[in-house]
Design a protein around this nucleic acid. Sequence first.
DNA 1: TAGGAGAACTTGTACAAACAAGCGAGCCCA
DNA 2: TGGGCTCGCTTGTTTGTACAAGTTCTCCTA
Lengths: 255, 255
Amino acid sequence: MVARYERIADELRDEILSGAHPVGSQLPSEAELAERHGAARGTVRQAIAVLAAEGLVGSRQGARRIVLGRTRSQSFAELHSFAQWARANGCRYGGQVIAQRRRAARGPEPARLGSAQVLEVLRVRTLEGEPVLLERTVYAEWVAGAVEKLPADCESVTEALYESIGLVFAYGEHLIDAVPAGAQDARLLGVRRGSPLLRQRRTTTTHEGRPVETSDDRYRAGSVAFSIRNSIGANPLVRQAGDLRFGAGEHMFES
Amino acid sequence: MVARYERIADELRDEILSGAHPVGSQLPSEAELAERHGAARGTVRQAIAVLAAEGLVGSRQGARRIVLGRTRSQSFAELHSFAQWARANGCRYGGQVIAQRRRAARGPEPARLGSAQVLEVLRVRTLEGEPVLLERTVYAEWVAGAVEKLPADCESVTEALYESIGLVFAYGEHLIDAVPAGAQDARLLGVRRGSPLLRQRRTTTTHEGRPVETSDDRYRAGSVAFSIRNSIGANPLVRQAGDLRFGAGEHMFES
DNA sequence: TAGGAGAACTTGTACAAACAAGCGAGCCCA
DNA sequence: TGGGCTCGCTTGTTTGTACAAGTTCTCCTA
């Protein structure tokens, strides 16, 4: 059973994406939409809030809402799962575990993952046959067993963990910056040492706030970009100051 | 006059940031908060929605809400304005226009900015005295005059434009990836050619959806990172496929 | 003691009503 | 003609109510 406001949101979104409401044009008023759908104004507002969060429409008190764009931001699942994202974009994709070992948690890991033992996995992901992403992931102890059981060429870790132990990655925190490729990065991604990589560091938790993993993912430059649409009043992306230093050598599996 | 739900949100945020509600702990129920603040449940829900959008709390139907983190995502203004962001972080900052000229719009610019003539500005931004950001911005014709009147060392373009013509940057679309520094990048940022830069391409519009500018901003690696907090159901960040090609030399707003 | 039924609690959805606040267009007057 | 003002429209805020749906804990029973 889909909620009513979601169906209204879907319908409005379709109308925008199909061009019935061109970019820059005014949306029907809340009252009009409410009458058309036979719903209360509050429900319509909820529907419109969904579209606003997707960056499709903007609003200003007193004035009609306007259509801002036609490219829709996707769900968290696609941000988190490389496989789901690749599939949604119609790309061939694959993955391969390069190295995997258990070790004691160190540095900020005990605090972040809440376990003294962790499982460290180095994985290469490919898009259209080419290696584009190097994942250095550290799993909390309580999922380590399930991760170890996965095949080395598992295509979607997220889905596999959901199937095996019902694990859902619910919340994530991401830090995005650029770093030069280290020796290992260069070798595995097939680029020159020092060439630019897009790095995404993330920590993921379950619905209950239980930490699952932290990861250092490095994308080959040009293969992937992150996109965000936002508006005054609500957006989750922020800059964070770095310290102008970065060491290329502080990796996990660096020999 | 601040809205009631905003005051409740502020109070709750303070409690979370101050540690009264530790990370992972449960928030009081909506009914409890409503009674404590003498407000209706709907108002409390609105307040909590603000915190959820900031990534501070998560929720699941039937279960108490939990605190997800203590680092608050900031407002759009801080994402958009380098000056406002730097100030909020207590950094010394500056800016200097390197070059500026009017020219005919080309490529995707006429469509994106809605004008045939544009103003192109090359600006270097500094943090704590060091150059960290190179902005290549193209302004639509209708703001070009106001931009030209700004002093070359204007510290905050966003604020200056607001003061002079009441312009508010309301909506933005951002594309984030990594690129190697070109010759000009390297010279102006004081890094080696080919070293990694974090690139943010953005297009900004007013409340009315009127395009203001598109920009290609390049951050020195290590100086700045982008951070995002998200959850299942709502997040604005997406990956976008690149084409695996990139040339270091093809600057200035290529597609 | 283990497991299941169920009650109590909590969040999600929906409706209705009212007032506040801001915008825009049209009107009137100088 | 130009400027200011008013009025209607539209979105923003708030309250109250009701029920649906999911979670969690307790207690009872096999």
